[in-house]
């Protein structure tokens, strides 16, 4: 019996979450990385909150980008290594939707914790409370974009040996507009201005990437898996 599209994605999502929770230590790694990177900046620049406040949006956003990149390495590799992915490509089910479900699972595990943690980190860097809603909103939309773009990169490089540096090289330039809109949105909110413009743009980009990204991911995965 063929499962419907919704239940197919649900199955993949549930499977990935279950697998991830068996390795708690790996789930929290991106989050710990995020916090450590944001700690580096006060140490490197100055403990003065007045100085840190000006660059706080940039710090949080760059750290989130790097953390999301770090987690991409394990997005597809285990499934490709143990042959699961090859069976998926042959299963006749829409591969793009299965990969989208996997990306969603990845975002829930590696993106959402950062979004929840961000106000705390922002507070430590002197960000006013009035900017928190925009910080959380921009990160929620932005990390979604990062996960989809990163997913395309991960699918392209999954068969390449030592692909992690290559992955960063491919994905970071593509992600630069997201960084611009995300960090500027927070910056505008901190100065009491309206940030709806960049937030709308981030939402539009998320929709664009979610609608086109899975097709590219599936095409890339088919190339990577065929031997």
């Amino acid at each position: 019996m063929q499962p419907g599209v919704g239940s197919l994605m649900g199955l993949v999502l549930a499977r990935d979450l279950r697998l991830a929770f068996r390795h708690w230590d790996q789930v929290i790694q991106p989050l710990v990385f995020f916090v450590i990177v944001t700690t580096l900046f006060p140490l490197a620049i100055s403990p003065s909150l007045d100085e840190l406040r000006g660059i706080a949006p940039g710090i949080v956003w760059v750290a989130a980008m790097l953390a999301s990149l770090l987690a991409l390495e394990s997005l597809f590799r285990p499934d490709v290594d143990d042959g699961t992915m090859e069976q998926w490509t042959l299963s006749g089910q829409p591969l793009s939707l299965m990969l989208l479900a996997k990306t969603l699972a990845h975002w829930l595990l590696a993106g959402l914790p950062l979004v929840i943690m961000a106000p705390l980190v922002g507070y430590a860097l002197g960000m006013p409370e009035s900017a928190w809603p925009v910080l959380v909103g921009s990160l929620a939309l932005g990390t979604g974009c990062l996960s989809v773009l990163g997913g395309i990169g991960a699918a392209l490089t999954v068969s390449v040996r030592r692909g992690s540096v290559l992955l960063a090289l491919l994905v970071l330039p593509l992600e630069m507009p997201i960084l611009i809109f995300g960090a500027r949105a927070v910056d505008l909110a901190m100065h009491g201005e309206s940030a709806t413009g960049p937030l709308n743009l981030l939402a539009a980009m998320l929709l664009l990437f979610i609608s086109l990204g899975p097709v590219a991911m599936a095409a890339a995965m088919r190339i990577s898996v065929e031997s």
């Binding site: 395309i152 392209l156 507009p177 611009i180 960049p198 890339a220 990577s224």
Partner: peptide, 28 residues
């Protein structure tokens, strides 16, 4: 053959992104 096809996907994703990069940098 694989290099051709994998890099083709990247080129297509990149060209979709180029106008976004241009616009975002100008806005920034």
């Amino acid at each position: 053959q694989r290099a051709d096809r994998a890099s083709a996907i990247l080129a297509i994703v990149g060209v979709v992104n180029v106008p976004i990069v241009k616009y975002s940098v100008e806005w920034w």
